[in-house]
Nucleic acid binder design. Structure first.
Lengths: 160, 160
DNA sequence: GCGAGATGGTCTCCATTATAGACCTACTCT
DNA sequence: AGAGTAGGTCTATAATGGAGACCATCTCGC
């Protein structure tokens, strides 16, 4: 967390600020019927959120890589999912696919300008994930431990 | 990629900066074998990226909502997926579930402090998605139109 | 006191999607 | 010739997603 987009540093905006922005967006989408084709969250983030997309974008952040290099870089992705995910990212214009007709033709994947630009919000999100990782793991442990128990705190009767 | 420049406080850092940060993180994860249990991307973002999670977080950003209110707010989610997604978010400590033993017992879901804090990176990502939405739609149209065609640009032979 | 409607879910079934792993063509190196 | 690399495709099976039926409880109108 050494570098942050200066947003929290300069003006310590109240936490409601982000909530307000998002609520407003959400209301706008709802006004359009929350149509999947028009809602950026459903249309764009769903793709980004798919298991391998972000990982591949990050892997390609440093430098372009070829197909098999990517396979080695992201150890437990299958060839099929790699192909598929790369196609999706290419279709969305986040990466470019270049075939070099060399002796054994080699294919290189690189971030496009669009792909570069998504790294900024992605970095913020990864930063969040890293700094809250411990808390999340702990929350999960607590949740799993409480399974079947009835804490009986005020308003926590748990009729699950 | 091994040095972290100290220039990142005030000025909007050049786009390479994010790439450097991410590459560094990625290298660190790789050093640990990219273990799914230790990698924040695979462990945290996979959940956030799931189809409904972000949408629910955004829906709850404004104010707490009850189960059926959420059903109405996010029209085409099924009861099953709503339950499931809420459980995931609760397990990760992003939302809290409160049961009020009223006449017909009502259940309220609200963002926790953790959940509030994720709104910040989420807002950044949503902002990106909205401002690049047009470009992405266009890229998709171009990609789909080019299916089966061979552009033959330099280094784009496409033996697909 | 009876059916209708709201509360917050669970359960079952089917369709879509993900994953592992075999297979394929072309080329080079020893 | 045989092994290795390149970049994939294809198939078979496991996991996931979604629609909708079902359930128990309470209240309201009549």
């Amino acid at each position: 967390m050494s570098r942050l987009p200066a947003r929290n540093l300069a003006a310590p905006a109240p936490p409601t600020s982000d909530a307000e922005v998002l609520s407003e967006r959400f209301a706008a989408w709802q006004a359009q019927g929350l149509d999947a084709a028009r809602c950026p969250v459903r249309n764009v983030l769903d793709h980004l959120g798919s298991k391998w997309s972000t990982l591949l974008l990050i892997a390609l952040a440093e430098k372009p890589l070829r197909f098999n290099a990517l396979l080695r870089t992201v150890p437990d992705i299958s060839r099929r999912m790699l192909t598929q995910t790369l196609r999706h990212l290419e279709r969305d214009g986040l990466i470019e696919r270049r075939v070099f007709p060399s002796k054994p033709p080699s294919v290189e994947y690189r971030l496009s300008a669009e792909g570069q630009s998504v790294l900024t919000p992605l970095t913020a999100l990864v930063g969040w994930a890293e700094s809250h990782f411990a808390a999340i793991v702990e929350a999960r442990a607590r949740f799993d431990a409480a399974e079947g128990a009835a804490p009986a705190t005020v308003g926590t009767v748990s009729t699950r």
